[in-house]
């Protein structure tokens, strides 16, 4: 088995050395005439405005956190579920099943909680705006009723 890991290692090493080698060799062959216009950040031909590190939606951060939990869970389930078939055929599958899916159930409850809270809706603003509109319409409806009476 160690031999197989050595094989895998040689693949990784080759795959890592290859791009370095390609870039290194092409360094001697390609031209290099840099000037400031060429090195400027590309912003559709205009002069770049400000830093490129603009603010972006912090929803990305939330996705990363939710992903982390799920990924750890998937990585943990692989070795557990690897034993499931043998256990199912020879008996004794219940503990494995409970262990894996009890764990999974807790995570699913978490996902449903996130879902209900609206954390996995990408555009939460839109939802809030929709709700505000609905309240607005209700208010207007009441207001008009008041005016009529």
């Amino acid at each position: 088995m160690l031999q197989e890991f050595a094989n895998a290692l040689s693949f990784i090493v080759l795959a890592a050395v290859l791009p370095v080698g390609i870039l290194f060799v092409s360094k001697f062959l390609r031209p290099s005439y840099p000037y400031s216009g060429k090195l400027a950040t590309y912003e559709c031909g205009e002069d770049p405005v400000g830093s490129a590190f603009v603010m972006f939606n912090n929803r990305f951060y939330l996705v990363a956190i939710v992903f982390l939990v799920f990924d750890v869970e998937v990585a943990l389930l692989f070795p557990i579920m690897r034993l499931f078939r043998e256990a199912a055929i020879n008996g004794g599958a219940l503990p494995i099943f409970l262990l894996a899916f009890g764990f999974l159930f807790v995570l699913l409850v978490g996902l449903i909680y996130e879902w209900k809270k609206g954390d996995i809706d990408w555009v939460r603003d839109a939802i809030e705006r929709k709700q505000a509109l609905r309240e607005d319409a209700a208010f207007k409806h009441r207001f008009e009723n008041v005016k009529d009476s």
Partner: peptide
């Protein structure tokens, strides 16, 4: 592509800038 000039932006973080295509290639080929 091999013979094309290879420019980087002025403010680019050169170490990571060079590392990134290598990582992608290493992951996909490995």
């Amino acid at each position: 592509m091999f013979l094309k000039e290879d420019t980087a932006t002025k403010n680019a973080d050169m170490f990571i800038y060079n590392l990134a295509p290598g990582l992608v290639t290493a992951g996909a080929l490995g």
